[in-house]
Design a binder for these strands. Structure first.
Lengths: 233, 233
DNA sequence: GACTTTATTAAGTAGGTACATATTAATATT
DNA sequence: AATATTAATATGTACCTACTTAATAAAGTC
């Protein structure tokens, strides 16, 4: 008697992954049908399906109806990043969080911001600049635009007290988000507020959100020198 | 007669998400039990479960056995990035890909690399520097260390022809990966190979992989100025 | 009251059945 | 031979049932 307990879908996932790692199933190979794997391992097809679902999502295999399952030829590295509220991020590092409003005004959107939102006409939006600090040292400088058509309430928020970052996350869920990372040299304003010298390489996290088709906000969060963003798991 | 067809789990997911967006379920609120939602919407509990599974994965809700489902108070922005083989990335932009080996030698691991791998002792690893080009212009400069204990075959690969990047992805699946992004100023080597002037801000993608506990490779991919990394979806 | 034990609850999982859907393969038609 | 039609097939989905597990609440004990 094998006497072994029933297989869970994570067991199946691990077994299949192991076989891919040890090249039983090599890149480009076609895997057996779910049903055959189920039969071989002694579990239900639904269990194999659940396992495959995850392997497919992490980019290790590719599945097609009728076509079957195939090990990806060029597996991409898929990394997930959590971008929390800055206050949370600072507090979770065990640092003291502070926040300073730098400026707040209604300005016409420049071309760069229009491009981010994908809009053609210039509109007036709330333009907010603010600084997040960790242990009294500059941590992130944010330059944000908020569309007052989709988010008129932002005008009643005292941004000297509550950061737009936090207020928006709490009060303005989005249905679509675009996130991108790039590097820029510190200059003028960013250098000044982050207390660094002009020219220093800074990581920028740019986030733009929409609700349906309507723009909500677009922010460039410029991190202080040395900032690293690392993937979860 | 409503005459409507049966609900799919994506319908349920969209319905729940809509309710979260329109604040029927506000941040911090507890959602009804899966079973009650199923009853209300007229579908099976498993269908609701499948929908919740995705909402939970994207970080919109939090689920606990017995505790039920709760809308996250501070929803994080969760972004997923695919980091393909550089050749693929270049080709998908519609550019011509080229590759140049810059150097290849067996060196002792410096502290920084040991830290990335989480190892205490200095070991000799294969140290490879290479340049990826798009349309004859520098695209990514990579500085890579490969552990020859876990990956002895790399020593037989002609890295002048095939990039270590590509060979490893094809031949050395990993079980764990660490990915991080940061910005650095171009200097000396990186400036020279990327044909940019020293001081320019460059985005660095650092990737370290293991198979089980054993280090495979760690690479710093330094992108040419202007490079942006954007999330999938 | 503080602590431990027990029961309850809601999500999580496994199995089975039936059917839907997207592709590919085979066949028929022009 | 090229094209359109039809059949076959593997994954995807929906529903049901039964059981498991983790977390919480309630009850009991010192």
């Amino acid at each position: 008697m094998t006497g072994q307990t029933r297989l869970s879908w994570t067991d199946v996932r691990d077994e299949i992954r192991a076989r891919i790692l040890n090249r039983t199933y090599a890149p480009g190979d076609k895997l057996p049908r779910d049903e055959d794997i189920a039969l071989e391992l002694g579990c239900a097809r639904t269990t194999v399906h659940r396992a495959m679902q995850e392997l497919s999502q992490t980019g290790l295999v590719e599945r097609k109806r009728k076509g079957g399952t195939q090990v990806k030829i060029d597996p991409v590295t898929r990394a997930t990043f959590d971008i929390p509220i800055t206050r949370r991020e600072v507090e979770q590092r065990g640092s003291k969080y502070d926040y300073q409003l730098i400026s707040r005004s209604l300005d016409d959107t420049p071309l760069s911001v229009m491009a981010r939102f994908g809009i053609q006409q210039t509109v007036q939006m709330l333009h907010v600049k603010a600084l997040h600090l960790a242990d009294n040292r500059p941590y992130i400088f944010e330059d944000r635009w908020v569309d007052t058509r989709s988010t008129p309430d932002i005008l009643n928020v005292d941004l000297k007290v509550e950061s737009a970052n936090e207020w928006l996350v709490r009060n303005k869920p989005y249905s679509r988000v675009d996130v991108r990372f790039f590097a820029m040299n510190a200059e003028g304003e960013s250098a000044e507020h982050l207390s660094t010298k002009a020219g220093d390489a800074l990581l920028v996290i740019e986030r733009t959100t929409w609700i349906g088709q309507d723009p909500i906000t677009s922010v460039q969060a410029v991190a202080a020198p040395g900032y690293q963003l690392s993937a979860v798991n």
